[in-house]
């Protein structure tokens, strides 16, 4: 069987890839993809630990919650990105310096 450490290592690599994307990308959509990668790494850890809780399924249930939360977050974030694009004509996070006007 696959050990728990293997899953955690894969999750760690995905998590740091997500951090790299968030810090280095100059496009809000790619920053959002980085956030999704980090969320997926966390979900992978939840699922891997959830194997050892057959009765209550805590890991899998909270993995489901995290997936739903990610969907809600993405919808709002994309609405914000479209609004920012409409106002500033760019989606580079470094260029957006004002909160309002």
């Amino acid at each position: 069987m696959i050990t728990l450490t293997d899953f955690l290592l894969v999750g760690a690599v995905l998590f740091s890839t997500g951090i790299y994307m968030i810090v280095s990308k100059r496009n809000s959509i790619q920053v959002l993809i980085g956030i999704e990668l980090m969320l997926n790494a966390a979900i992978l850890n939840l699922v891997a630990f959830g194997r050892f809780d057959k009765l209550k399924n805590s890991g899998q249930v909270f993995a489901l919650f995290a997936i739903v939360l990610a969907a809600a977050t993405t919808a709002v974030a994309l609405a914000i990105i479209l609004n920012v694009y409409r106002r500033y004509k760019t989606i580079d996070p470094d260029e957006i310096k004002n909160l309002r006007d």
Partner: peptide, 11 residues
């Protein structure tokens, strides 16, 4: 696919 290998098919 990794979730399936972690025996979480519903997730």
């Amino acid at each position: 696919g990794l979730y399936v290998l972690a025996l979480a098919d519903f997730v």
